[in-house]
């Protein structure tokens, strides 16, 4: 613990108080939590199903299972996920934070990404031995690199006013966007790629710049988020070293 970490909600005393409160309060949100976990399971099962091409349960006489072709290359696991319980959160400030009950001793480090079962949450900024606090994407300080399905890449920021509205500026006007389209994280951010940021609820044309502005409903309900995953990118250090050496 160092410097401004002491005056943050990752502080042992403060996080301890929040932990005590949360131990009582979280029973009241169990139904929501179960629903979101169930939905996540469905999503993960669908992803898993995409890898098995023959449904042997449906068609047990299927004679052969297509072997993995030679162009398929093995990708090493880049990310480690750690679960954490949210013990305090806010949506009313200009920069909003959540406090989680995992810290340095559990392997949580600064600048790790935080995602929930439904989408992006934020980035770890303060850590102590057993607690950490993360700045959520509902913060003016925190932008997220995000993209649409067709590969359009931009930045998602928070305007600072409405906790259910993120803004994606400067989308070229020829890109066709429909209401309800999903926006995902890209490989350029500290988040793992293809994590849901939110869905488009409104689009506007900035006539003076000929660019579109997309309004996005965040996938995570920041008022209700209960459990999150802290994502460690195992390649961060190697990547940073490489990039720093390039600049010399």
């Amino acid at each position: 613990m160092q410097g401004n970490d002491i005056m943050s909600s990752a502080n042992l005393l403060i996080a301890g108080i929040y932990q005590q409160q949360d131990d009582v309060a979280y029973y009241f949100a169990l139904r929501n939590m179960n629903d979101s976990l169930l939905n996540e399971n469905i999503r993960l099962r669908e992803q898993l199903a995409a890898y098995s091409e023959v449904d042997t349960l449906y068609d047990s006489t299927a004679a052969y299972i297509k072997p993995i072709d030679s162009t398929h290359f093995v990708k090493y696991a880049d990310y480690t996920y750690r679960s954490a319980k949210v013990i305090n959160k806010s949506v009313n400030a200009v920069n909003n934070y959540i406090t989680i009950n995992r810290g340095e001793k559990d392997g949580v480090r600064k600048n790790m990404a935080v995602v929930s079962s439904t989408g992006v949450v934020g980035r770890v900024v303060h850590t102590s031995a057993h607690f950490a606090s993360a700045i959520s994407v509902l913060s003016k300080k925190q932008a997220v690199s995000a993209g649409l399905k067709d590969g359009t890449v931009g930045h998602v920021t928070w305007a600072g006013y409405n906790p259910s509205e993120l803004v994606m500026n400067d989308v070229p006007q020829q890109i066709r966007v429909n209401i309800g389209d999903s926006v995902f994280t890209t490989e350029y951010s500290f988040f793992p790629p293809n994590v849901l940021v939110g869905t488009v609820t409104k689009k506007e044309m900035n006539e003076s710049k000929n660019l579109q502005v997309l309004y996005i409903k965040p996938a995570t309900d920041f008022r209700r988020v209960q459990y999150v995953y802290v994502v460690e990118n195992l390649m961060t250090e190697e990547k940073n070293n490489l990039e720093n050496n390039m600049n010399q």
Partner: peptide, 11 residues
Amino acid sequence: GISVDAFMNTA
């Protein structure tokens, strides 16, 4: 004020 700041991460 600084105690409240610590609780709310407002520095």
